[in-house]
């Protein structure tokens, strides 16, 4: 064993403490890269969060489509696929909270908290890496949807728009899931803590039936539901405004605006909560 040499010329304390935007972006990049590298070594998560929605796609496309008739000149398959894709983002976003809970347990978060990095870098890095993961997953699932005979009735631009909505929706859920991960602090408990509030929202949304066909007591809930907003936006982009108006009684513009409002609210609130949780020891 050799002894330690004098350190390489290090910056002064003041230089190291400074946080110009360029440096904050650099830290976010380094942390996001670290998450992606870990992800590549934990293929289980990728497989789990892709297989699950794939099976759902197959179930809906081949089983339910033959028994459910919506009328309105649209097959149940075309109706339900955008919803399945939106729903798949909830599963994937859960992975963010689990990853953060692991970081808490392994002590990595404390390691980051004693480094002179921006207090938001850890969370933003997580949101960035996980959005990339969600983007990749969306593209895979869109390919699978085409393979089972889904029709993008709104052309290529609509399809790309839908992917953007999927990723944005997943990003908002990532912020929520990150906060849960920090608050719960143990990987096993993250899954129920994310699903208990999210699953009821999925079932009381426009995911599996048009809102007008839901039980009457559920309809008001479904109208203000953020998941309805995301699904209607995705559906409108994939199928076009006319089809959306026929099955959902909202225009694409309205649902996009609703989605945007929800998105900003969720991202701001939960990022703020999560950063607060992270800074405070």
């Amino acid at each position: 064993m050799t002894t330690l040499s004098q350190p390489i010329a290090f910056p002064t304390a003041e230089e190291r403490a400074a946080l110009p935007p360029r440096r904050v972006l650099g830290d976010i990049t380094i942390l996001a890269q670290r998450n992606l590298r870990r992800l590549l070594r934990n293929t289980g998560l990728i497989v789990f969060s892709t297989i699950q929605p794939l099976m759902q796609l197959i179930l809906f496309a081949y089983v339910f489509t033959s028994v459910v008739d919506l009328g309105e000149g649209i097959s149940y398959k075309d109706f339900v696929v955008p919803a399945v894709l939106v729903q798949s983002m909830t599963f994937s976003a859960m992975g963010s909270g689990v990853g953060i809970a692991y970081d808490l347990q392994s002590g990595m978060i404390d390691r980051f908290r004693v480094l002179p990095i921006a207090r938001s870098a850890f969370l933003v890095g997580r949101i960035v890496s996980d959005s990339l993961r969600l983007g990749l997953q969306s593209i895979l699932l869109v390919a699978a949807s085409l393979a089972i005979g889904f029709h993008f009735q709104n052309g290529f631009v609509g399809a790309v728009g839908m992917i953007v909505v999927l990723v944005l929706f997943g990003m908002a859920l990532t912020a929520f899931s990150a906060w849960i991960g920090l608050a719960v602090g143990d990987p096993e408990s993250v899954q129920p803590a994310v699903f208990i509030p999210v699953l009821p929202l999925v079932f009381t949304s426009s995911a599996f039936a048009p809102v007008s066909r839901l039980p009457e007591w559920m309809q008001p809930v479904a109208y203000v539901n953020p998941i309805t907003a995301a699904i209607d936006a995705a559906r409108g982009l994939a199928l076009g405004n006319d089809t959306l108006e026929r099955v959902s009684d909202v225009s694409l513009t309205t649902s996009l605006l609703q989605f945007a409002a929800w998105w900003v609210a969720i991202v701001v609130v939960f990022t703020w909560l999560a950063v607060r949780r992270y800074r405070r020891g």
């Binding site: 392994s106 990595m108 404390d110």
Partner: peptide, 9 residues
């Protein structure tokens, strides 16, 4: 007191 390392790196 407890090691803080990334198991997957």
């Amino acid at each position: 007191q407890y090691s803080a390392v990334d198991e997957d790196l």
